[in-house]
Each structure stands twice: as C-alpha cells, then as structure tokens.
C-alpha cells in the first residue's frame, strides 16, 4: 500500500477541539473546528470519526501530534507520537507557514499568549497568569448575554462610531461596566467596540507587557475570527495584523508538524488506525489515599483496560516519564 503520507494534529482546548490533516509539505488537506462543550472525550471521538470519513482516499496517517490543555487525554486516546504544549505548537505552525512573522498574538478559549519569533525560533513568550478576561470564553459569555451570535460580534463592532470605554482588567468588572453602559443607553455597537478595545488594552498591558512587538504580527486562535478585536489590535499597535487562513486551528497544525518532524527522525508512528477510536473510552477520577496530598488521579480506559493515568504528583499511577520522551524534534 503506497498511499500519500499525511499527518494528523489535534488541539484539545477548553472551548474547541481542532483536528487537521497535513501533507508532507504542510498543506492543510482537511480541518475541523468543534466545540468542546465540556465533553472532550466525545468530541475527540466525533472529530476522529469526521476525519476518517472525509479523509482523501489513499492517505496513510504517518504520524499524530496532540496539543492544548487536553493534550494528555487526546494523546492517550489516539496514541499520539508527540504530546506538546501550545506555545511550542503555535510557534512551530507560524514558523513553518508564515515567513517573516516576528510576533504571534494568540487568544484562545481560556488563555491568551504572546510568542516572539526571532531568527526562526521562539525567543520569548508569555501567557496570561490568573486573568482570563480577554479570552474566548468571556466573549462567548458576553455574546450570549447580549443575545448576539458570536459570529456577528466582530462585524457589529466595526459599525461603531464612538466606542465607549469598558473596564478591561477583570471579566467581572468588564461585565458590570457593560451593563451600566447599556443602562445608560449607549448603542450595542459602541459597547461591543468598547469591549474589543478593553480586551486589547488588557492583553497588551498584561500578556504583552514589556515585549517587543515587531512586524509581521500574526493574530490567531479562535478569537482571531473577531474582526473587531483585530481592528482594535491594529489601532493600538499602529501596524497591520495578519490573520492566517487557518487561524483557528494553528495549534493543531503545529502539533501535526511536530509529529512529522519526529517521524522523519526514524520513529514509527504509534497510531493504530481509526478503528481504535470507536472503542468505549471512559474516564474516571479517584482520590489516591497514598499520602496526605490526596491527588485526584484521572484514569482513561478503553475496552476494559487502562490506557493512561495522570494527575498524581509522585508518579505512582502515571508513568508519564516513560511515555513522555523529549526527543529532539525542534531542530
């Protein structure tokens, strides 16, 4: 069987589960952006099913990479070859697809990050610390509260003529400020645009603090779909901001690229085909009573046998050290 070798990338985040299929030249053959809805296992299965059905004929999955906050889970479910953090994955995706990029602004469901690229490598990064005010899940919530589909949020912001000022430091403050401005009778467009500006201000002050933001600037992650935020970034930075074609699945693209790099070094993929995904995955968590820490251990089983465990501090349950190999794939 001599098919086209392709690479699968999964990014399991708090708000979305993304899957991509890349060829060896890193062209995106297929992509899916699905809502996590707090059910990562089901949605990963659903995504794999969709990928299987729509995969071009003759393709062979030669490697699989997983990233995102649910990367352990996804990696265990699909037997991924590479399980990597989101910073490295996003950095890799941009380095391979957008030559000349020096800054990545990434806003996802629950975290936001800035990544600086210099001389072909990630040279600095920062992530939000304790505040998720500027992230997708907050925007989602506000859209729902205002009764506007999230897809129309950005377009509405662009219609604003005189944006109102919204407190951006904290999601709770922002929400109460928005409500007060609504009660005062400000227009929805102006409030939404004000919110976009507040989020950008908060991002640049908090995540982007002290970072040298040089062009080309790439804006990605789910929130990059929001035209209003993009425009606010451009206004605040005084520069053009590029939203890549596959902005919403860049993490998954990076994971697939990392998988390709690992396979190229002579590893054989651990991926066992799409059949295994149909098995009945169950996750349960239990409190280990081995010591006073009472770690919450999560156990993923399929077809009655344990696939992986994680969440313990001492390594008694997880043997993640054995699974996680830090192969030199960044070269």
């Amino acid at each position: 069987m001599n098919g086209l070798e392709v690479y699968l990338g999964l990014d399991v985040g708090s708000v979305s589960v993304n899957l991509v299929l890349l060829d060896e030249k890193y062209n995106v053959l297929e992509k899916f952006y699905l809502r996590t809805q707090g059910r990562p296992i089901e949605v990963v299965k659903e995504g794999m099913e969709m990928m299987y059905r729509s995969m071009p004929a003759g393709c062979i999955i030669a490697g699989v990479g997983a990233t995102g906050s649910g990367r352990e889970l996804a990696g265990a479910m699909v037997d991924a070859d590479v399980v990597k953090n989101e910073i490295t994955a996003h950095g890799m995706a941009v380095l391979q697809s957008i030559p000349g990029a020096q800054t990545i602004l990434e806003i996802g469901g629950q975290d936001s990050k800035i990544i600086l690229l210099r001389n072909g490598v990630v040279s600095d990064f920062a992530m939000n610390t304790v505040c998720a005010a500027g992230t997708g899940s907050f925007l989602d919530r506000q859209a729902a509260r205002l009764g506007i589909p999230i897809q129309e949020f950005g377009a509405l912001a662009l219609k604003s003529t005189s944006p109102v000022r919204i407190a951006g430091r904290c999601a709770v403050f922002a929400e109460s400020d928005m409500i007060h401005k609504q009660q005062m009778g400000c227009s929805l467009e102006d409030i939404i645009k004000g919110l976009c500006e507040a989020l950008v201000r908060n991002y640049l002050n908090n995540v982007g603090k002290g970072k040298e933001i040089l062009p080309d600037i790439v804006f990605q992650g789910g929130v990059a779909a929001n035209e209003g935020i993009k425009r606010s970034f451009e206004d605040a930075l005084g520069q053009r901001v590029i939203v890549p074609e596959h902005y919403d699945v860049m993490g998954a693209i990076g994971a697939a690229i990392l998988a390709h790099k690992k396979i190229r070094q002579g590893y054989t993929t651990r991926f066992r085909g799409f059949d295994s995904i149909h098995s009945d995955f169950t996750a349960r968590s239990f409190s280990c009573s081995g010591c006073a820490n009472l770690c919450e251990v999560v156990e993923l089983s399929s077809a009655g046998s344990v696939k992986a465990r994680w969440g313990d501090r001492c390594g008694k349950w997880s043997s993640s050290a054995a699974r996680e190999n830090h192969a030199d794939i960044l070269a």
Binding site: S69, K84, N85, E86, I87, T88, D111, N119, G120, V121, V122, S123, D124, F125, M127, L330, A331
Partner: peptide, 19 residues
C-alpha cells in the same frame, strides 16, 4: 497550566540555544 508554561519555557531555551 503550570506544566504547560514550564515545558514551553524549556523548549524555548533549547530552541534558542540551538540557534
């Protein structure tokens, strides 16, 4: 969240070191 930041930091250090 902690592990993500730590892992990304070490990746970056090694990436930069290689360059």
């Amino acid at each position: 969240g902690f592990d993500t930041r730590l892992e990304a930091f070490i990746d970056m250090m090694e990436w930069r070191g290689r360059y």
